[in-house]
């Protein structure tokens, strides 16, 4: 099955895995039609808990389920599942290293119409800062399928952020995926771009557009934490510069992680992301991304600064 939407890929994959693994349970805070957790409810009503519009309780209830041998997936928009429930995640899940999976749906600016209150541009920063937490940001729907499979196999707390909107896959359906492993999608020697989520495709487009002039390497960093520092350093070694691209604040996300990893290397880093400001409403997603400089053109511009 090929998907072009991370939410749908997520929802159907969770159902498929739920058939194989009776320990998987799902909790939802009244956004099941958006997060696609309603698919799980249709297949496994007894293992689905509509927790009402109460993210804090949902999150700690998941902790109790995990403590009792279940593999709970909590669902809401990323602003709520990572932001509103931060304390519950920290105190009742992460300190105990519990096997709870947190789905941050409609992350980044992908809920374009709803504006700043619903656009999670700091969720990865918050989740990264919590010890024991793993943070996933798959590049596309193909990778989302494999990420959800890996989350079930993985023991421990894990946050996954998903995009709301449809877009073309940039990774192959049969490409290998493992939590913690960045993948080189395009080889290059002049400049390296580290990207996650929807920005991976834009980074590939930028590299393609520059191919007559520059050799640009593109690395898909779908596990933002733990960051494979050695692989990141190896990918950057010898390059004139590194560009990071993420649909997230430039503070605390992929850019911060990569810059820290490369801090003592002679490779300057330019970070593309939402500058230190909140999102806003828009009638279309691509227009909003452009408003915040999250475009192929901006990636091209930053790459060329290193040439």
């Amino acid at each position: 099955m090929t998907y072009n939407n991370q939410r749908i890929a997520y929802g159907e994959t969770l159902v498929r895995l739920g058939r194989e693994n009776p320990d998987i349970v799902a909790l939802e805070a009244d956004l099941g039609k958006s997060t696609m957790s309603f698919m799980f409810q249709e297949s496994f009503p007894e293992r689905y808990f509509e927790m009402g519009i109460a993210e804090a309780n949902m999150t700690s209830t998941a902790a109790g389920l995990a403590q009792t041998g279940k593999i709970p997936f909590t669902h809401s928009f990323a602003v709520f599942s990572a932001g509103r429930a931060y304390d519950q995640i920290r105190q009742t899940i992460a300190i105990g290293n519990l096997n709870v999976k947190i789905c941050g749906s409609s992350a980044g600016l992908s809920d374009f119409g709803d504006g700043s209150t619903h656009q999670a541009i700091e969720d990865m920063a918050i989740m990264r800062a919590i010890p024991n937490m793993t943070v996933l940001c798959p590049a596309d729907a193909n990778e989302t399928v494999k990420a959800v499979e890996a989350m079930v196999e993985f023991k421990g707390p894990c946050y996954i952020r998903l995009n709301r909107n449809n877009y073309e896959n940039v990774t192959a359906e049969d490409a290998p995926f493992a939590i913690g492993v960045p993948t080189i999608l395009r080889e290059g020697t002049d400049v390296v771009v580290f990207a996650c989520g929807i920005m991976v495709g834009k980074a590939l487009a930028a590299a393609e557009g520059l191919k007559e002039m520059l050799s640009v390497k593109v690395v898909n960093v779908s596990t933002v934490k733990p960051l494979d520092v050695e692989k990141i350093r190896k990918a950057a070694a010898g390059c004139k510069g590194a560009v990071t691209a993420e649909e997230h604040s430039v503070i605390g996300g992929l850019g911060s992680a990569v810059a820290q990893a490369l801090a003592d290397m002679p490779v300057p880093v330019a970070c593309i992301g939402v500058e230190d400001e909140f999102g806003c409403s828009s009638h279309d997603y691509e227009g909003l991304l452009a408003h915040y400089g999250l475009t192929t053109d901006v990636i091209v511009r930053e790459i060329r600064k290193f040439a």
Binding site: F49, A63, G64, L65, K70, R90, Q91, I95
Partner: peptide
């Protein structure tokens, strides 16, 4: 259960009770 940030224990207990029932 890890507790200390007050107000969270009943939610954890709810999760455990649900799992026991399942």
């Amino acid at each position: 259960a890890g507790t200390g940030s007050l107000g969270q224990g009943l939610s954890i207990g709810l999760g455990m009770a649900l799992a026991q029932r399942l």
